[in-house]
Amino acid sequence: MEVRVSNVRKEFDGFAALKDVSLDIRSGELIALLGPSGSGKTTLLRLIAGLELPSQGKIFFGDMDASEKTVQERNIGFVFQHYALFRHMTILENISFGLKVRPRATRPPAGEIRRRAMELLDLVQLSGLEKRYPNQLSGGQRQRVALARALAIEPGVLLLDEPFGALDAQVRRELRRWLREMHDRTGHTTVFVTHDQEEALELSDRLCVMSQGAIEQVGTPDEVYDHPASPFVFGFIGESSELPVTVEKGELLLAGRPIGLAAPEARPGPARMYFRPHDVDLVEGDATLAGVVHTSRRVGGTRRVEVDLGPANHKVEIDLPFDHPAGERSQLTFRPRRWQLFPSA
Protein backbone atom coordinates (compact mmCIF):
# COMPACT_ATOMS: atom_id res chain seq x y z
CA MET A 1 0.00 0.00 0.00
CA GLU A 2 1.13 3.56 -0.75
CA VAL A 3 1.67 5.82 2.21
CA ARG A 4 1.65 9.58 1.83
CA VAL A 5 2.81 11.82 4.62
CA SER A 6 1.58 15.30 3.88
CA ASN A 7 2.93 18.41 5.64
CA VAL A 8 3.05 16.75 9.02
CA ARG A 9 4.13 18.65 12.08
CA LYS A 10 4.45 17.14 15.53
CA GLU A 11 5.08 19.00 18.75
CA PHE A 12 5.77 17.63 22.19
CA ASP A 13 5.20 20.24 24.90
CA GLY A 14 6.04 23.07 22.51
CA PHE A 15 9.11 21.33 21.11
CA ALA A 16 8.79 20.58 17.40
CA ALA A 17 9.93 16.99 16.85
CA LEU A 18 8.86 17.14 13.20
CA LYS A 19 8.65 20.33 11.17
CA ASP A 20 6.42 20.17 8.13
CA VAL A 21 7.49 16.79 6.80
CA SER A 22 6.19 15.33 3.53
CA LEU A 23 7.13 11.92 2.22
CA ASP A 24 5.70 9.58 -0.40
CA ILE A 25 6.27 5.92 0.28
CA ARG A 26 5.71 3.70 -2.74
CA SER A 27 3.78 0.50 -2.63
CA GLY A 28 6.01 -2.51 -2.00
CA GLU A 29 9.22 -0.62 -1.37
CA LEU A 30 11.59 -1.02 1.54
CA ILE A 31 12.43 2.45 2.75
CA ALA A 32 14.77 3.45 5.55
CA LEU A 33 14.31 6.46 7.81
CA LEU A 34 17.87 7.32 8.69
CA GLY A 35 19.16 9.93 11.05
CA PRO A 36 20.92 10.60 14.34
CA SER A 37 18.99 10.41 17.60
CA GLY A 38 16.61 13.33 17.94
CA SER A 39 16.16 13.66 14.20
CA GLY A 40 12.48 12.74 14.41
CA LYS A 41 12.69 9.44 12.54
CA THR A 42 11.00 7.38 15.24
CA THR A 43 8.34 10.06 15.71
CA LEU A 44 7.56 9.88 11.99
CA LEU A 45 7.27 6.09 12.19
CA ARG A 46 4.97 6.30 15.20
CA LEU A 47 2.83 8.87 13.42
CA ILE A 48 2.40 6.56 10.45
CA ALA A 49 1.46 3.78 12.87
CA GLY A 50 -1.05 5.95 14.68
CA LEU A 51 0.74 5.57 18.01
CA GLU A 52 1.05 9.37 17.95
CA LEU A 53 -1.26 11.88 16.34
CA PRO A 54 0.12 14.72 14.23
CA SER A 55 -0.23 18.28 15.52
CA GLN A 56 -0.78 19.33 11.90
CA GLY A 57 -0.92 17.61 8.53
CA LYS A 58 -2.32 14.35 7.27
CA ILE A 59 -1.26 10.82 6.56
CA PHE A 60 -2.84 8.85 3.73
CA PHE A 61 -2.84 5.09 3.21
CA GLY A 62 -3.59 4.83 -0.51
CA ASP A 63 -6.51 7.23 -0.98
CA MET A 64 -7.78 6.78 2.54
CA ASP A 65 -7.11 9.49 5.09
CA ALA A 66 -5.52 7.47 7.90
CA SER A 67 -5.19 10.47 10.21
CA GLU A 68 -8.79 9.86 11.27
CA LYS A 69 -8.23 6.19 12.03
CA THR A 70 -7.16 4.62 15.29
CA VAL A 71 -4.10 2.39 15.59
CA GLN A 72 -6.35 -0.66 15.58
CA GLU A 73 -8.06 0.36 12.36
CA ARG A 74 -4.91 1.17 10.43
CA ASN A 75 -3.92 -2.47 10.00
CA ILE A 76 -0.19 -1.94 10.32
CA GLY A 77 2.51 -4.27 11.58
CA PHE A 78 4.84 -2.67 14.10
CA VAL A 79 8.09 -4.17 15.37
CA PHE A 80 9.92 -2.60 18.29
CA GLN A 81 13.63 -2.58 18.94
CA HIS A 82 13.20 -4.54 22.16
CA TYR A 83 10.72 -6.98 20.56
CA ALA A 84 7.87 -6.25 23.02
CA LEU A 85 6.80 -9.89 22.98
CA PHE A 86 4.07 -11.03 25.35
CA ARG A 87 6.09 -12.89 27.94
CA HIS A 88 3.22 -14.88 29.36
CA MET A 89 2.33 -16.36 25.98
CA THR A 90 4.03 -19.10 24.02
CA ILE A 91 5.57 -18.25 20.67
CA LEU A 92 2.54 -19.66 18.90
CA GLU A 93 0.16 -17.62 21.08
CA ASN A 94 2.22 -14.52 20.42
CA ILE A 95 1.99 -14.97 16.67
CA SER A 96 -1.72 -15.77 16.68
CA PHE A 97 -2.62 -12.89 19.02
CA GLY A 98 -3.57 -10.45 16.26
CA LEU A 99 -5.96 -12.97 14.71
CA LYS A 100 -7.43 -14.12 18.01
CA VAL A 101 -8.43 -10.64 19.13
CA ARG A 102 -10.48 -9.99 16.01
CA PRO A 103 -14.23 -9.63 16.44
CA ARG A 104 -16.06 -12.89 15.83
CA ALA A 105 -17.31 -11.82 12.41
CA THR A 106 -13.83 -11.48 10.91
CA ARG A 107 -11.94 -13.96 13.07
CA PRO A 108 -10.77 -17.08 11.23
CA PRO A 109 -11.66 -20.42 12.84
CA ALA A 110 -9.22 -21.68 15.49
CA GLY A 111 -7.75 -24.33 13.21
CA GLU A 112 -7.10 -21.78 10.49
CA ILE A 113 -5.43 -19.38 12.97
CA ARG A 114 -3.15 -22.16 14.11
CA ARG A 115 -2.31 -23.16 10.56
CA ARG A 116 -1.41 -19.61 9.63
CA ALA A 117 0.68 -19.09 12.72
CA MET A 118 2.59 -22.29 12.01
CA GLU A 119 3.18 -21.14 8.44
CA LEU A 120 4.60 -17.85 9.66
CA LEU A 121 6.74 -19.66 12.18
CA ASP A 122 8.10 -21.62 9.28
CA LEU A 123 8.66 -18.44 7.28
CA VAL A 124 10.77 -16.95 10.07
CA GLN A 125 12.62 -20.26 10.37
CA LEU A 126 11.56 -21.05 13.91
CA SER A 127 9.55 -24.22 13.33
CA GLY A 128 9.53 -26.44 16.37
CA LEU A 129 9.76 -23.60 18.85
CA GLU A 130 6.03 -22.87 18.99
CA LYS A 131 5.63 -24.10 22.57
CA ARG A 132 8.53 -22.09 23.97
CA TYR A 133 8.19 -18.85 25.89
CA PRO A 134 9.93 -15.67 24.73
CA ASN A 135 12.48 -15.74 27.55
CA GLN A 136 13.71 -19.10 26.25
CA LEU A 137 14.76 -17.62 22.91
CA SER A 138 17.80 -15.63 21.82
CA GLY A 139 17.54 -11.98 20.80
CA GLY A 140 17.61 -12.72 17.09
CA GLN A 141 14.92 -15.39 17.48
CA ARG A 142 12.74 -13.04 19.53
CA GLN A 143 12.96 -10.38 16.86
CA ARG A 144 11.89 -12.88 14.22
CA VAL A 145 8.91 -13.85 16.39
CA ALA A 146 8.02 -10.17 16.67
CA LEU A 147 8.13 -9.92 12.90
CA ALA A 148 6.00 -13.03 12.41
CA ARG A 149 3.50 -11.63 14.89
CA ALA A 150 3.30 -8.39 12.93
CA LEU A 151 2.92 -10.25 9.62
CA ALA A 152 0.12 -12.45 10.95
CA ILE A 153 -2.48 -9.71 10.59
CA GLU A 154 -1.51 -9.22 6.94
CA PRO A 155 -0.63 -5.58 7.46
CA GLY A 156 -0.86 -2.98 4.73
CA VAL A 157 2.40 -1.47 5.91
CA LEU A 158 5.16 -2.98 7.99
CA LEU A 159 6.87 -0.53 10.35
CA LEU A 160 10.14 -1.47 12.05
CA ASP A 161 11.66 0.70 14.76
CA GLU A 162 15.42 0.03 14.90
CA PRO A 163 14.67 -3.66 14.49
CA PHE A 164 18.27 -4.80 14.82
CA GLY A 165 19.43 -2.24 17.34
CA ALA A 166 19.51 -4.59 20.32
CA LEU A 167 21.33 -7.42 18.57
CA ASP A 168 25.03 -8.13 18.33
CA ALA A 169 26.89 -7.40 15.13
CA GLN A 170 26.88 -10.84 13.58
CA VAL A 171 23.21 -11.62 14.26
CA ARG A 172 22.42 -8.18 12.94
CA ARG A 173 24.12 -8.87 9.63
CA GLU A 174 22.37 -12.21 9.29
CA LEU A 175 18.95 -10.77 10.10
CA ARG A 176 19.51 -7.90 7.72
CA ARG A 177 20.09 -10.22 4.80
CA TRP A 178 17.18 -12.36 5.90
CA LEU A 179 14.83 -9.37 6.15
CA ARG A 180 15.78 -8.32 2.62
CA GLU A 181 14.96 -11.81 1.33
CA MET A 182 11.70 -11.82 3.28
CA HIS A 183 10.75 -8.51 1.78
CA ASP A 184 11.54 -9.65 -1.74
CA ARG A 185 9.37 -12.70 -1.16
CA THR A 186 6.37 -11.13 0.55
CA GLY A 187 6.46 -7.64 -0.98
CA HIS A 188 5.09 -5.75 2.02
CA THR A 189 5.53 -2.01 1.96
CA THR A 190 8.10 -1.66 4.69
CA VAL A 191 9.41 1.38 6.56
CA PHE A 192 12.27 0.89 8.97
CA VAL A 193 14.04 3.30 11.26
CA THR A 194 17.76 3.09 11.83
CA HIS A 195 20.67 5.25 12.86
CA ASP A 196 23.10 2.86 11.20
CA GLN A 197 23.91 4.24 7.76
CA GLU A 198 25.52 1.01 6.62
CA GLU A 199 22.35 -0.89 7.44
CA ALA A 200 20.23 1.67 5.58
CA LEU A 201 22.47 1.59 2.50
CA GLU A 202 22.60 -2.18 2.36
CA LEU A 203 18.97 -2.92 3.05
CA SER A 204 16.76 -0.26 1.57
CA ASP A 205 15.35 0.49 -1.88
CA ARG A 206 15.28 4.15 -0.94
CA LEU A 207 16.38 6.01 2.09
CA CYS A 208 15.13 9.13 3.72
CA VAL A 209 17.80 11.02 5.64
CA MET A 210 16.49 13.12 8.49
CA SER A 211 18.00 15.71 10.75
CA GLN A 212 16.46 17.91 13.44
CA GLY A 213 12.88 17.14 12.57
CA ALA A 214 13.22 17.67 8.83
CA ILE A 215 13.95 15.51 5.79
CA GLU A 216 17.35 16.27 4.27
CA GLN A 217 17.22 13.97 1.27
CA VAL A 218 15.22 11.08 -0.13
CA GLY A 219 16.71 8.80 -2.76
CA THR A 220 18.18 5.46 -3.66
CA PRO A 221 21.30 4.44 -1.77
CA ASP A 222 23.39 5.29 -4.86
CA GLU A 223 21.88 8.77 -5.22
CA VAL A 224 22.27 9.58 -1.58
CA TYR A 225 25.79 8.25 -1.32
CA ASP A 226 27.10 9.69 -4.58
CA HIS A 227 25.18 12.95 -4.65
CA PRO A 228 24.47 14.08 -1.12
CA ALA A 229 22.10 17.03 -1.16
CA SER A 230 23.55 18.77 1.87
CA PRO A 231 26.71 18.87 3.98
CA PHE A 232 24.76 17.04 6.68
CA VAL A 233 23.98 14.13 4.38
CA PHE A 234 27.55 14.04 3.12
CA GLY A 235 28.82 13.87 6.67
CA PHE A 236 26.24 11.43 7.92
CA ILE A 237 26.29 8.89 5.10
CA GLY A 238 29.69 7.31 4.77
CA GLU A 239 33.02 8.76 5.78
CA SER A 240 33.85 12.29 4.81
CA SER A 241 36.48 14.96 5.09
CA GLU A 242 35.80 18.64 4.89
CA LEU A 243 38.02 21.55 3.82
CA PRO A 244 37.31 25.29 3.72
CA VAL A 245 38.33 26.36 0.23
CA THR A 246 38.05 29.47 -1.90
CA VAL A 247 36.82 29.53 -5.47
CA GLU A 248 38.78 31.90 -7.69
CA LYS A 249 38.69 32.07 -11.48
CA GLY A 250 37.14 28.61 -11.65
CA GLU A 251 39.85 27.06 -9.49
CA LEU A 252 39.90 25.81 -5.92
CA LEU A 253 42.37 27.34 -3.49
CA LEU A 254 43.26 26.18 0.00
CA ALA A 255 44.85 28.88 2.11
CA GLY A 256 45.60 30.88 -1.03
CA ARG A 257 47.33 28.03 -2.84
CA PRO A 258 45.81 26.27 -5.86
CA ILE A 259 45.22 22.56 -5.29
CA GLY A 260 44.82 21.54 -8.91
CA LEU A 261 41.04 21.17 -8.96
CA ALA A 262 38.87 23.06 -11.42
CA ALA A 263 35.38 24.25 -10.60
CA PRO A 264 34.34 26.31 -13.61
CA GLU A 265 30.69 26.57 -12.59
CA ALA A 266 31.16 27.38 -8.92
CA ARG A 267 30.36 30.80 -7.53
CA PRO A 268 33.55 32.68 -6.62
CA GLY A 269 34.24 33.12 -2.94
CA PRO A 270 34.58 30.85 0.10
CA ALA A 271 33.06 27.36 -0.01
CA ARG A 272 33.27 24.04 1.74
CA MET A 273 34.66 21.06 -0.12
CA TYR A 274 33.65 17.54 0.91
CA PHE A 275 35.28 14.34 -0.25
CA ARG A 276 35.40 10.74 0.85
CA PRO A 277 38.65 9.31 2.29
CA HIS A 278 38.75 6.57 -0.34
CA ASP A 279 38.13 8.97 -3.24
CA VAL A 280 41.66 10.36 -3.42
CA ASP A 281 44.63 9.88 -5.72
CA LEU A 282 48.19 10.14 -4.56
CA VAL A 283 49.81 12.54 -7.05
CA GLU A 284 53.10 14.35 -7.40
CA GLY A 285 53.32 18.05 -8.22
CA ASP A 286 52.84 21.52 -6.85
CA ALA A 287 49.14 22.08 -7.27
CA THR A 288 48.06 19.37 -4.82
CA LEU A 289 47.05 18.98 -1.22
CA ALA A 290 50.26 18.42 0.69
CA GLY A 291 50.55 17.43 4.29
CA VAL A 292 52.21 15.41 7.00
CA VAL A 293 50.78 12.15 8.29
CA HIS A 294 49.51 12.70 11.81
CA THR A 295 48.13 9.29 12.73
CA SER A 296 47.82 6.04 10.84
CA ARG A 297 45.39 3.20 11.61
CA ARG A 298 44.66 -0.06 9.93
CA VAL A 299 40.96 -0.26 9.01
CA GLY A 300 40.01 -3.57 7.40
CA GLY A 301 41.64 -3.79 3.98
CA THR A 302 42.97 -0.24 3.96
CA ARG A 303 45.07 2.07 6.04
CA ARG A 304 43.40 5.27 7.17
CA VAL A 305 45.72 8.15 7.79
CA GLU A 306 45.00 11.53 9.23
CA VAL A 307 46.89 14.18 7.30
CA ASP A 308 47.79 17.54 8.73
CA LEU A 309 47.49 20.09 5.92
CA GLY A 310 49.92 22.67 7.20
CA PRO A 311 49.00 26.35 7.47
CA ALA A 312 45.63 26.58 9.24
CA ASN A 313 46.03 23.20 10.84
CA HIS A 314 43.37 21.48 8.74
CA LYS A 315 43.20 17.75 9.31
CA VAL A 316 41.60 15.38 6.82
CA GLU A 317 41.34 11.61 6.64
CA ILE A 318 42.32 9.67 3.56
CA ASP A 319 42.61 5.97 2.79
CA LEU A 320 45.82 4.38 1.54
CA PRO A 321 46.50 0.81 0.49
CA PHE A 322 47.36 -1.11 3.67
CA ASP A 323 50.87 -1.83 2.39
CA HIS A 324 51.62 1.80 1.59
CA PRO A 325 54.90 2.73 3.24
CA ALA A 326 53.65 6.05 4.62
CA GLY A 327 54.19 6.15 8.36
CA GLU A 328 53.94 8.92 10.89
CA ARG A 329 55.50 12.17 9.80
CA SER A 330 55.77 11.07 6.16
CA GLN A 331 55.01 13.71 3.57
CA LEU A 332 52.02 13.04 1.32
CA THR A 333 50.68 14.85 -1.70
CA PHE A 334 47.22 13.93 -2.95
CA ARG A 335 44.14 15.23 -4.69
CA PRO A 336 40.48 14.23 -4.23
CA ARG A 337 39.22 12.23 -7.19
CA ARG A 338 35.59 13.05 -6.50
CA TRP A 339 34.39 15.91 -4.38
CA GLN A 340 31.51 18.23 -3.84
CA LEU A 341 31.23 21.94 -2.99
CA PHE A 342 28.72 23.41 -0.59
CA PRO A 343 28.32 27.08 0.24
CA SER A 344 30.07 28.20 3.39
CA ALA A 345 27.86 28.16 6.41
Partner: peptide, 18 residues
Amino acid sequence: VSREVEEVSATLGANRFQ
Protein backbone atom coordinates in the same frame (compact mmCIF):
# COMPACT_ATOMS: atom_id res chain seq x y z
CA VAL B 1 5.93 -3.94 31.79
CA SER B 2 6.77 -1.64 28.97
CA ARG B 3 4.35 0.67 27.24
CA GLU B 4 5.56 -0.92 24.04
CA VAL B 5 3.84 -4.17 24.90
CA GLU B 6 0.56 -2.30 25.19
CA GLU B 7 1.25 -0.40 22.00
CA VAL B 8 2.08 -3.53 20.05
CA SER B 9 -1.16 -5.07 21.24
CA ALA B 10 -3.04 -2.08 19.85
CA THR B 11 -1.25 -2.30 16.49
CA LEU B 12 -2.30 -5.95 16.29
CA GLY B 13 -5.89 -4.80 16.48
CA ALA B 14 -6.67 -5.49 20.13
CA ASN B 15 -9.07 -3.00 21.68
CA ARG B 16 -8.37 -1.48 25.07
CA PHE B 17 -10.31 -4.07 26.98
CA GLN B 18 -8.49 -6.91 25.23
